[in-house]
């Protein structure tokens, strides 16, 4: 049981590592945020599930469920807020960007 839990936790750690490589390799804020949000969400969830499996589904599994729920609610909201703030602060998208409908619409309003 401990081994299975350790493997799941290791998988979570692998996703977190990939996310941080993504932070280094991606060209601009928005792409970095994409890599960061997704991997950190699943990475933390796998960590928590690994703990639950490793210690054999005791009482604290309820608390782990609550933690997973809160991670799922708060993680996307924080990245959405950061991306929105970055866009309105005027941080440019990378050069290979295809199009930017939001900027077009804002300029159309003025």
């Amino acid at each position: 049981m401990m081994l299975a839990g350790a493997l799941i936790t290791f998988l979570g750690a692998a996703f977190l590592l990939l996310g941080s490589i993504g932070l280094l390799r991606m060209p601009d804020v928005y792409n970095r945020m994409q890599a960061g949000t997704k991997t950190s969400t699943l990475g933390s969830i796998l960590f928590l599930i690994g703990i639950a499996v490793g210690f054999g589904f005791k009482v604290f599994i309820a608390k782990i469920l609550i933690l997973i729920l809160f991670i799922l609610i708060t993680n996307p909201i924080s990245s959405h807020t950061l991306a929105r703030a970055a866009h309105f602060f005027g941080i440019e998208l990378t050069e290979s960007t295809v199009r930017d409908n939001l900027k077009e619409d804002e300029e159309g309003d003025r």
């Binding site: 990939l18 490589i21 993504g22 390799r25 991606m26 060209p27 601009d28 928005y30 792409n31 890599a35 866009h87 998208l93 990378t94 290979s96 960007t97 295809v98 199009r99 930017d100 409908n101 939001l102 900027k103």
Partner: peptide
């Protein structure tokens, strides 16, 4: 992330 050419084609 692991692809050597970093295949992205981003936009909003």
């Amino acid at each position: 992330v692991l692809h050597p050419k970093l295949p992205i084609n981003p936009g909003i």
